[in-house]
Every structure is written in C-alpha cells, then in structure tokens.
Simulated scan of single mutants.
Amino acid sequence: MKRVTTGLEVLINDHGRFKGNIALLCHNASVDSQCVNAAFRFKEMFGSRFVKIFGPQHGFSTDAQDNMIETDHTMHPYFNIPVFSLYSETRIPTDEMLEGIDHLFVDLQDVGCRMYTYIYTLTLLLEKCGDRDIEILVLDRPNPLNGKDIEGNILNLEYQSFIGRHPIPVRHGMTIGEVALMHQDYWTTKKANLKVIKMRDWQREMTFEDTKLPWLLPSPNLARHESAFTFPSTVLFEGTNLSEGRGTTQPLEIVGHPKMEPFSYYANHLNAQALENKLKGFTFRPIVYIPTFHKYTDVACGGFQIHVTDKKIFKPWRVGQFLLRELYHHLGEDFEWLKPPYEYNYEKEPIDIINGTDKLREWVEKQGSMEMLDSFEDLAAYRQQLNTVKLYGGHTI
C-alpha cells in the first residue's frame, strides 16, 4: 500500500488560494510525514498572516492529563501569536477569539470513538461559525480503527455531554472530515462555510499502521496506535473505581484493581468465559502493575492487558462490556461505580454518560447475556446516514 497523504500534506502542496488571515486548531499529533508540526508548516506557508492557534482538550501541546483538567490561553513563545484553549472556561470559541480570521483550519487526529472529544470541539466550532464569514477547512486524517467497521450503541441524547454530543455509535467509522459533513447534514440547521481537504490513498479498511504514517500521541495516554484500538474497551472503566492504566506505560490497554488476583481468575474463569461467548481477535493477559499517578498511586493492582491479535475481527466495545460485566460480579463489594461529577455533569452516573445510556449499566448489574448485548446495536439508520457523507469508497459493516 502507498503511504497515505494527509489533508495537511495536500494543503502544503497547494495553498496558494488562501489570501486572508489564517488560524489553526491543532495539537501534538498534527504533523506531516516527517513529524513536523502543522504550526511550523503554517508559518512557512502563510508567514505573518498566520495569526492564531487554537488547542482542544489536553491543550495545543497535548500535555494536560485526563478529563476536567483545563488549559490556559497563552502567547506562544516562538510563533508569537495567541494560543486559545477550547478546553478552558469555554468549549466554544468566543467572538473575540474569532475576530480577524478569514480561514480557520482544523487538523486534529481523532481516534474513531464516540467518547473522544476532538470531534465535539469541531462541531461546536462549526455551530459557532454558522453565521460568520469564516471559511472552516478540515484537514482530513485517518480513522485509526478503520472506516469500515462500526460498533456499539447509538448515544441517547438524554445523556449528551462533551464526550457524546451526537447520535452516533461508539465506534463510528468516520474520518474527522466525514464527521464535519455529518454534522452539517444531520445535526445542525446553521450551516458553516465548510470545506474538507481530503486525504489521498486512504482506504476504509485501513487501520493506522496500514497508512505508513507516524503515530504521535493525540492525547497523553494514547502513546501507541495499539492503544487506540483498545480505547473503546477500556474507556468504560473511567466510570468505575478500577484503574484503566493511567500512571503506567500502557494506559488504556490495561485495567486492574488492588483486590484482584488476576492469574487464578484468568485460569479458572475469564479465559473460558471469553471463549464461550465467542469473543475473538484478542487475548487477555493477567498482569500486576503499580500506577505512578491517578487511581491507586503506588499501590499494586492485579488486572489484565488486552492484546489485539486480529484487528479484522476484534470488537473492542463488545469486549469492554463483557470484561466490565465479569469484573463487576467478580469483585462484588470491592467494585464501585464512579460518582459524579464527570465531564462537567454533576447529576448523572459517569458510566451512563460514557455509555450514552443507563441501560448498559443495568445490563452489567443484572449479568445480561451477550445475545442481549446485541439488542443495543440498532445501527441501520446510522449506516444510511454514513453512506451519504462518505468521502472515500468502500462498504461499512
């Protein structure tokens, strides 16, 4: 396969039409194939017309940990232009922030999962600019989980939050450019002046390693592209008192708890249950680890690492729900659902916000069957919508 050319690199090779003032929404993973950050390339292309930078959750430098850790607005010491945080006292750019901008480029590496916030920074931006004479240009990037497979329940809008604003499944199968088009066609009545600069040579069945592009962490706990594939499994544990591996070298690939002895539980129960429930394309590996920060700092946790062995058949959302169900009943009174607040919601259970419904928590507590889990995936209408905004060929399953 050819190396994929990102929207950023397409722009670098053809940027002459842009004559006004330029702004850029980007982060640590906004790089070209040589690992040069987009901000450097924008300075080269546009010079003094490059006037503002915006950063999403975790910041322009992607150094802020976890949810509800905000970043400040700053003046960049090298570029000597303001850097505005869209995860600060506001998630929506203010009138002052947008003043004097003619073209606002968005170059963010998404992870292909509903709970990842960058697509909502984009859609809030589109809504804010719906009545403004600012051209919004999305520099498209690969969905690292591929653009073919979709999985999980559709968000119930009663559980809308900054980790779930729109009625999409957990594994949504879109590039960030396609998310922008979906928003304009189905989720808003205020149309922005939107253009998507497409990638070249990206195919929907590609996972990230197929693209031959460098992986730079898009958020502090996704340092490996393998972590993106387990993220739809392990993000569920943010709504519990189990560690999801933050404070280790493999966050969001592992889960654990101080009261768990993983080796006997794996040998006597978990492995057999996974096989019985026909979960494929991965293996659980029992481990013991000590987080250096976050949950259970300096306390030994027993748990499991999810090793993906075949990405074509691995179903991360399904595996995550299965593991959550099993550990809920195994740990008994040592298991706890995290209490609010979570992502600025002070009322609803965090696990329900993550799941986008309270029905999956009830499924876990009642030890529902895997066949019952199938009933949560009513994806026919979503597939039809997705087919109308696809920028790249192929089928979605």
Results as ranks from 00 to 15, higher is better:
residue 177 G to W: 03
residue 225 H to I: 13
residue 363 W to Q: 05
residue 328 Y to T: 08
residue 178 E to V: 07
residue 203 Q to D: 15
residue 85 S to W: 01
residue 70 E to P: 00
residue 145 L to K: 11
residue 17 R to V: 13
residue 275 L to N: 04
residue 79 F to W: 04
residue 397 I to G: 06
residue 230 T to R: 06
residue 393 G to M: 00
residue 219 S to N: 13
residue 218 P to T: 05
residue 397 I to K: 13
residue 27 H to Y: 10
residue 267 A to T: 11
residue 168 I to Q: 03
residue 255 V to N: 01
residue 354 I to L: 06
residue 12 I to H: 04
residue 153 N to V: 10
residue 135 E to H: 07
residue 187 W to S: 00
residue 98 L to Y: 10
residue 261 E to S: 09
residue 281 G to W: 09
residue 18 F to V: 12
residue 351 I to H: 08
residue 2 K to Q: 11
residue 17 R to E: 10
residue 84 F to A: 07
residue 148 K to A: 11
residue 151 E to M: 12
residue 141 R to Y: 09
residue 47 G to A: 01
residue 104 L to M: 14
residue 166 H to F: 07
residue 187 W to Y: 15
residue 214 P to K: 09
residue 312 K to R: 09
residue 106 V to W: 02
residue 305 Q to N: 04
residue 253 E to G: 11
residue 148 K to R: 15
residue 53 I to V: 15
residue 373 L to H: 13
residue 86 L to M: 06
residue 275 L to K: 12
residue 220 P to Q: 01
residue 314 F to W: 05
residue 314 F to E: 08
residue 185 D to F: 08
residue 107 D to Y: 02
residue 184 Q to R: 02
residue 11 L to C: 12
residue 290 I to K: 11
residue 145 L to D: 04
residue 350 P to H: 03
residue 280 K to F: 12
residue 302 G to D: 08
residue 26 C to D: 02
residue 206 M to I: 01
residue 184 Q to D: 05
residue 132 R to S: 12
residue 383 R to L: 15
residue 42 F to A: 02
residue 69 I to F: 15
residue 40 F to I: 05
residue 101 I to W: 01
residue 336 E to S: 09
residue 356 G to C: 03
residue 311 K to S: 13
residue 118 Y to M: 02
residue 257 H to A: 06
residue 46 F to L: 06
residue 195 K to H: 09
residue 162 F to G: 03
residue 306 I to G: 11
residue 38 A to T: 01
residue 232 P to T: 00
residue 304 F to C: 13
residue 261 E to I: 09
residue 185 D to K: 15
residue 283 T to A: 13
residue 127 E to K: 02
residue 268 N to H: 14
residue 290 I to H: 06
residue 69 I to C: 14
residue 10 V to I: 12
residue 145 L to F: 10
residue 102 D to I: 01
residue 87 Y to I: 01
residue 341 P to W: 14
residue 61 S to F: 13
residue 391 L to T: 00
residue 108 L to P: 01
residue 22 I to L: 12
residue 228 A to D: 11
residue 81 I to E: 11
residue 337 W to T: 02
residue 290 I to P: 01
residue 286 P to Q: 05
residue 26 C to V: 04
residue 175 T to V: 04
residue 123 T to N: 04
residue 213 L to I: 08
residue 354 I to E: 00
residue 375 S to C: 04
residue 121 T to D: 05
residue 259 K to H: 12
residue 65 Q to N: 13
residue 166 H to G: 04
residue 183 H to F: 13
residue 177 G to H: 10
residue 319 V to D: 03
residue 160 Q to S: 14
